[in-house]
Amino acid sequence: MEIVEMDGSGRIYIPAEIRRRLNARRFRIRIVEGGLLLEPVDAVDSYYGRFGPPRYASLEEIEKALEDAAQVDLR
C-alpha cells in the first residue's frame, strides 16, 4: 500500500510502478465509504458525453426510448 498526498490544486501523485501496472490514463472517480475509488475508463466510455450532454439519465429511459422507436417502426 502506498501513501500519497494531494496538492493545493487537488492533484494526487500516483507512483510510477502503480501507473505502469494500470496501463490507463483516464479514470472514473467515485466517492465510496471511507475514500475514493479510481476505475480505468475503456475506449468506449471515453467518448461518453464528449459530443454533447447525454440524452438519457438512466437505463430505464434508454429502454423506454427503444420501445417507443420500435412502436414507430411497426406502424
Rank of each mutant, 00 (worst) to 15 (best):
R55P: 03
F27G: 09
E33A: 12
R28P: 00
I29H: 01
A70R: 11
G52L: 06
V44F: 11
K64M: 07
E61Y: 01
A43Y: 07
A70G: 07
L59R: 14
A43M: 13
R25I: 14
K64H: 09
K64Q: 13
D45S: 09
A43L: 05
L37W: 05
D42Y: 07
D42S: 04
E67H: 08
V32A: 14
K64P: 02
Y48I: 15
D68Q: 10
E67F: 05
L66P: 01
E67V: 06
D42N: 15
A70D: 07
R28A: 15
E60I: 01
A57G: 15
L66H: 00
A43S: 11
L59H: 09
D42V: 03
P40R: 04
L66D: 00
A57Q: 14
S58C: 06
P40D: 03
Y47R: 13
S58W: 06
I62C: 02
G49R: 03
R55M: 06
G35L: 07
A69W: 08
E63R: 14
D73C: 04
L36A: 05
D68S: 08
F27P: 10
V41M: 15
Y48M: 13
E39W: 04
P40I: 06
Y48T: 11
V41H: 01
G35K: 08
L66K: 08
V41L: 15
G35T: 04
K64N: 06
D68Y: 03
R28I: 09
I31M: 12
P53G: 10
L36D: 00
Q71M: 12
G49A: 03
R55K: 11
V32C: 12
E33D: 15
L37V: 08
Y56K: 05
R30P: 03
R50Q: 13
L36T: 03
Y56A: 06
F51Y: 12
L38S: 06
V44A: 12
I31F: 04
R30L: 13
E39A: 12
F27C: 11
R28Q: 14
D68V: 02
V72P: 05
E39I: 12
V44Y: 04
D68T: 03
P53M: 08
E33R: 08
V41W: 07
P54T: 09
G52R: 02
S46V: 05
Y48Q: 12
V44Q: 10
E39Q: 14
A57W: 04
S46K: 11
L38M: 15
Y48L: 14
R28L: 15
Y47I: 07
Y48V: 15
S46A: 15
E60V: 06
F27V: 08
R55C: 05
D42I: 03
K64A: 09
R55G: 07
G49P: 03
L59M: 12
Y48N: 11
A69P: 01
G49K: 09
G35V: 01
I29V: 15
L66N: 03
K64I: 05
Y47S: 13
P54V: 11
D73K: 13
L37S: 13
A70I: 07
I29R: 01
G35E: 01
P53L: 11
Q71G: 07
